[in-house]
């Protein structure tokens, strides 16, 4: 991630904000200017719940470039408490423990480091609820 990208996305990545359509009530996690459902432009930024349940998961054993040291790592689709679906890494959890893990909560972690200049992208991940 470049410096402007990190700066632009920090609020959403640090605090898990999303976009709620004031007209139809649909809430999105991914950035929107117009509601995907009702096409209203009246969207507000909202804080999304920091807890949810794992909908499905996978254990990545063949990573992309730059994530080799983390293998094996767990990627999950998470249904937040308000029903919004997000993708995140599940940490502090071994592949052998993930099948019985359901409830998860937000943590603050390093997402990636720029290979050349070292710039760090911080943001949310999830861990089994404590």
């Amino acid at each position: 991630m470049s410096a402007p990208e990190i700066w632009r996305n920090a609020k959403q990545r640090y605090n898990l904000t999303g976009y709620r359509c004031k007209k139809c009530g649909k809430t999105f996690f991914t950035k929107r200017i117009v509601c995907r459902k009702c096409k209203s432009k009246d969207l507000e930024e909202v804080l999304l719940p920091w807890e949810g349940a794992i909908e499905t998961y996978t254990v990545v054993r063949s990573p992309i470039d730059g994530y080799e040291t983390k293998v094996p790592y767990i990627i999950g689709l998470i249904k937040l408490k308000n029903g919004v679906r997000i993708l995140s890494e599940i940490v502090d959890c071994e592949p052998t423990e993930i099948e019985k893990t359901k409830e998860v909560e937000l943590v603050f972690r390093v997402l990636s480091k720029d290979k050349e200049k070292g710039l760090i992208t911080y943001g949310f991940k999830f861990r089994p609820k404590t």
Binding site: K31, V60, P63, I64, L87
Partner: peptide, 10 residues
């Protein structure tokens, strides 16, 4: 890239 690839998802 902003919401998936950042987590190292092939």
């Amino acid at each position: 890239k902003d919401y998936e690839l950042i987590y190292g998802t092939p």
